[in-house]
């Protein structure tokens, strides 16, 4: 023992105290989660920044996430609501595993851990489906040359670089107008686009909605397409997407992707945990604290999703 630490012939502090009444491992998990909280906060804050800055061309979430497996038609919010339910449910099974860990009941811990892993995997599968749908696209849009404001028939329009086809107040799929020949889903060539315009012109009840949500009447819309239209677009990549501003797609991929990566890591950790529970590693150690530590991480993943759900899908 260092001489400087000794007062009154007793060591000032020889370790062993737990000022926070929590073990080293649990504290470190908490500190990691604090940093991760700040990371996700920064992502969502920058999402908010871009959304405010480009509010004129930001898509309405209900127009984007409308699909549900095996169901036709528009069901906004339903699928993400299901994903949220799955994740909350897996959080519950995780707490139950932690609870039975405290009671040292190995078989119950195994049962609830397996259910948590199933829940996490179901969530990952749902997210893959959602990504697939987002990338593949839905109704499609027209890319327009919106570098400046301009006028048709003495009406002034602000710039817009994306326009959606509307029919009776609902978004209308461009597939109905382009005979379904999308060899390359993101880009189609000039001849296709001329055909697209004439198909649009022949259906008198079609309107065009610009990205700032102004609706053009049919005749104005045809003029607009001839003057400003460049090509049709379907789906999304990192450069552009059919839904709205490029950054919307980028943030979608980045934030839900980063969260999905957390879920994936969580599932891997849970599987390692399960193997160790089965091998009696924690029974020999005398406590199931590792279940608690991984549990903290798992609940954090659920916590982040609660915020992503609100700011990506609801607000």
């Amino acid at each position: 023992m260092d001489e400087a630490l000794i007062k009154d012939h007793k060591p000032a502090w020889k370790g062993g105290d737990l000022p926070y009444k929590a073990s080293y491992g649990k504290l470190m998990m908490w500190f990691f989660l604090i940093t991760d909280t700040l990371t996700f906060s920064a992502f969502l804050a920058s999402y908010g920044f871009s959304r405010f800055k480009y509010q004129d061309s930001w898509p309405v979430p209900e127009d984007v996430f409308t699909h549900f497996p095996f169901l036709h038609g528009d069901h906004p919010l339903l699928f993400v609501a299901l994903m949220t339910f799955i994740l909350i449910m897996s959080s519950v099974t995780m707490v139950l595993a932690v609870n039975y860990g405290h009671k040292m009941q190995k078989n119950k811990v195994i049962l609830w851990l397996v259910l948590t892993i199933i829940g996490g995997s179901m969530f990952l599968g749902s997210q893959a489906w959602e990504w697939g749908h987002f990338i593949h696209g839905d109704k499609g849009a027209v890319v327009t040359n919106g570098s400046s404001s301009y006028s048709i028939n003495d009406s002034l329009f602000v710039n817009s670089n994306l326009a959606h086809v509307f029919k009776d107040g609902h978004m209308y799929s461009i597939d109905n107008l382009s005979e379904g020949n999308h060899h390359d889903s993101a880009h189609s060539d000039d001849i296709d686009f001329d055909n697209f315009i004439s198909a649009f012109a022949s259906e008198k009840d079609l309107n065009l909605r610009l990205s700032d949500k102004t609706i053009l009447d049919h005749d104005v819309a045809v003029e607009y397409l001839k003057e400003r239209g460049l090509r049709t677009i379907k789906g999304a990549d990192l450069y552009e997407n059919e839904y709205g501003h490029t950054l919307f797609g980028d943030y979608f991929f980045f934030i839900t992707g980063f969260h999905g990566f957390h879920v994936f890591s969580g599932v891997v950790l849970l599987i390692i945990l399960l193997v160790n529970v089965i091998k009696d590693t924690y029974a020999r150690r005398g406590h199931y604290e590792m279940v608690e530590k991984i549990g903290l991480y798992w609940h954090f993943v659920d916590l982040v999703w609660v915020f992503v759900f609100t700011f990506f899908y609801l607000v």
Partner: peptide, 26 residues
């Protein structure tokens, strides 16, 4: 003490970040 060690950084920094970034966005 643990409760506030975890909660305070988020409760101070996140609203601050949001205030700065969102008002700049507008």
């Amino acid at each position: 003490s643990l409760k506030w060690t975890v909660l305070l950084p988020a409760m101070v920094l996140v609203p601050y970040l949001l205030f700065i970034i969102l008002s700049e966005g507008v």
